[in-house]
Amino acid sequence: MGALSFLMSAGLLGGGTSAQSADPQEPRREIADINGQSIEVFVYRPPSCVSPSFLFVFHGNGRAARSYAGSAREIADRACLTVFAPLFDEERFPNREYHRGGVVDDGELKPRDEWTTGMVSDLIRWAEDFEGRPGQDIYLFGHSAGGQFLSRVAAYDLPEGVDRVVIANPSTYVLPSMEEKVPYGFSGLPPKAATELTREYLAAPVTIFLGEEDTGDKDLARNDQAERQGENRLDRGERTFELARQVAEQNGWDFNWRLVYAEDVGHSGRGMLQSDYMIEALR
């Protein structure tokens, strides 16, 4: 039984965790060699868990990976999860490379082996080697800019074996649309590949996780593609989910997305990670 399945059956007591208070240790900084690049990864291990699953946490526009790892400690302790929070620094990974997945450059599709999205598979393999525990359940969580990144990962480059992708409060999504160009849709890809990727995207274990109070416009993407998705992050998430449901239904495709709300939470990574609804988002 996976850690989260056990957690749910045990009444949110934690997969193998004790009822004692969390260890006060801070996330530790490690260095991962990912295709010749040194990537800082902040790691937190729940102190009283025998065999934790892996939770990868992708930070927002502020690039505060250490802070995000710290904010994930509560869910890690409750759900028996080792946290890995990689830092995508702005110098090497500007918005086009992080937020939008490094899929296009100046409107042109890049070679697949240059996409930043591919680093997620590499990070998973690094974590398995680092912990010496391959084959663990894998959960991906991204908030804001990290949510934008994971939308591109889920749409174009999802690693095999990922148990759940939680896309929390991003400014933009990849729409299941042949009209919107990559990286906001699937136009620009070879037609056969675009159709197959869209089908796989809608069948992927995706949770759209929305703060009910995330209706402001601070740092909200305002380009033409973003504006077509809705007025604010809450609106854009709801519209994207509904469009995805409709496209899957119209084509007779599997649809494995879920929509989960965090009550009384605005645009806050900490608020989402520490929400009582985080367990539901990961399930």
Results as ranks from 00 to 15, higher is better:
189 L>C: 07
108 E>T: 12
171 S>H: 04
167 I>G: 09
155 A>I: 11
118 G>A: 12
10 A>H: 13
201 Y>H: 09
77 D>K: 01
221 A>P: 09
83 V>C: 05
138 I>E: 09
79 A>R: 00
213 E>L: 07
200 E>F: 02
198 T>D: 03
270 R>C: 00
143 H>M: 00
159 P>D: 05
226 A>Y: 04
176 P>H: 10
6 F>N: 11
223 N>T: 08
65 A>Y: 03
78 R>N: 03
116 T>A: 15
198 T>Y: 00
152 R>C: 15
160 E>R: 14
171 S>P: 03
184 Y>I: 03
204 A>C: 12
240 T>D: 03
264 D>S: 10
267 H>M: 02
181 K>S: 14
10 A>I: 08
84 F>P: 14
44 Y>V: 07
1 M>I: 14
170 P>G: 08
156 Y>F: 15
4 L>S: 07
154 A>E: 15
116 T>E: 04
45 R>V: 06
24 P>N: 10
207 T>H: 01
44 Y>F: 11
155 A>E: 06
198 T>Q: 14
265 V>G: 08
56 F>S: 05
193 A>M: 09
18 S>W: 01
104 V>S: 10
258 R>T: 13
70 G>L: 08
90 E>R: 15
143 H>L: 00
232 N>Q: 05
124 I>F: 11
27 P>A: 10
101 G>A: 11
164 R>I: 06
254 D>K: 08
61 N>E: 10
179 E>P: 01
50 V>P: 04
257 W>D: 04
175 L>E: 14
121 S>R: 15
146 G>A: 02
82 T>I: 15
193 A>L: 12
93 F>I: 04
59 H>T: 03
94 P>W: 05
223 N>H: 12
281 A>S: 05
64 A>T: 10
110 K>R: 15
66 R>P: 00
163 D>Q: 13
164 R>D: 10
